[in-house]
Design a protein around this nucleic acid. Structure first.
Lengths: 205, 205
DNA sequence: TTGTTTACTGAACACTGTTCATTATTTTTG
DNA sequence: CAAAAATAATGAACAGTGTTCAGTAAACAA
């Protein structure tokens, strides 16, 4: 069975070779500007070869999409050690924003780009997205058990919070923070302080 | 001078003929999917003609971008009649969200798409965007004069609020509200209730 | 009517994602 | 080991894209 094993391994190696090149190009140029030919050239194969490992451009995209969520989830792991649920909530938002700022193109790919989302966000494929959202809801439930957010619906509340942090991230990713350049405010400072305001609002809700 | 006048008029008519076709196609297919050839075919001219009236695809995009802001600003006009600044703030957010939901593709074009934004958001071109943002800041200042938002920085506070409503709008435009489909929550209901929560948070800040 | 300016055309260029007959390599079989 | 079968990789081709530009047609001025 060693030969079949090797074939299998080589197939996977080729896939990740393509993905490595694709990641670099996708994250640098964006979805539309990244071309299959550029990916092929980077790994020194012909364009046609890529289609032996991926059905189409969207499938490559989708693989990176999953990788993004996997990375984000990994960054959220340490949160489990934060005892107080409200502190954990605050930390989660901070991790989220940190991820968006430091993995700008991954974030864009995961939450802004339209491409592979069309028919899969309500299916199993959106797994890790749901996982993250469920984790947020769980924290909110724990907060409520401690008396916070009295009478608030967890679904609406989670959407409120998600919208807030996504809003900042999306304005950042798509360069709309520049609207504050005239008052000499960098995106980082802007986001940090806006997040502080939002958290102090959550405390008093 | 009547002949030069007519020429001028015809030039403008041609421009808006192109823009009408472009608007329909841009808003239906999105920026990348909309092709110059499709626009040309719609108005029954050759593709080359379009380049006699617009420098490139981005310039067409930019014209629609401006039109979007102009439309949004128009919808905000009635707000001037709302006396209480906090009520005006609430109404402004509602108008913003309403615009995003009912002019989804315009909103996308104005606040999410990257295309023509690159080098102009900090110049005069972003005029109407700044105008809208300044209006928000003005309302917040009036709120503060009435004792609301004590000690809060207007810039950070405005970014907090913008992020929140943009977050919902962006999640809506890019279909991420589907994450709540499993709990039978429509985007409309989601946004309405999340906005209520956010407003009640602003009241208690 | 002639000459000149203006408006428009559509073929061409360099790109894109994707397919597929052809070629090259590797593995299996005789 | 040689031949046959299976697998892998190619790159030309197709239909599409934004954009340019030599050439043509129409409108204007003399």
């Amino acid at each position: 069975m060693t030969i079949a094993n090797r074939k299998q391994r080589e197939k996977e190696e080729m896939r990740s070779l393509i993905l490595d090149a694709a990641r670099a190009i996708f994250l640098e140029k964006g979805y539309e500007q990244a071309s299959i030919r550029a990916i092929a050239e980077k790994i020194e194969y012909s364009p046609g070869t890529i289609y032996l490992y991926f059905k189409d451009k969207d499938e490559i995209f989708h693989a990176l999409h999953e990788e993004g969520f996997s990375r984000m989830l990994k960054k959220m792991q340490p949160l489990r050690h934060v005892q107080d649920p409200f502190e954990r909530l605050k930390a989660m938002g901070a991790v989220y924003l940190d991820f968006a700022v430091n993995n700008r193109d991954f974030y864009d790919l995961m939450f802004i780009l339209q491409a592979p989302i069309k028919h899969e966000i309500d299916k199993e494929d959106w797994e890790m997205g749901h996982q993250t959202l469920d984790y947020l809801k769980q924290i909110l439930r724990e907060c409520q058990e401690q008396g916070r957010f009295p009478g608030r619906d967890i679904n609406y509340l989670s959407f409120t919070i998600w919208s807030m942090v996504h809003g900042m991230s999306a304005l950042y990713c798509r360069d709309r923070c520049k609207a504050y350049h005239d008052v000499n405010l960098e995106p980082g400072k802007l986001m940090e302080n806006a997040y502080k305001i939002f958290m102090s609002m959550l405390e008093k809700i």
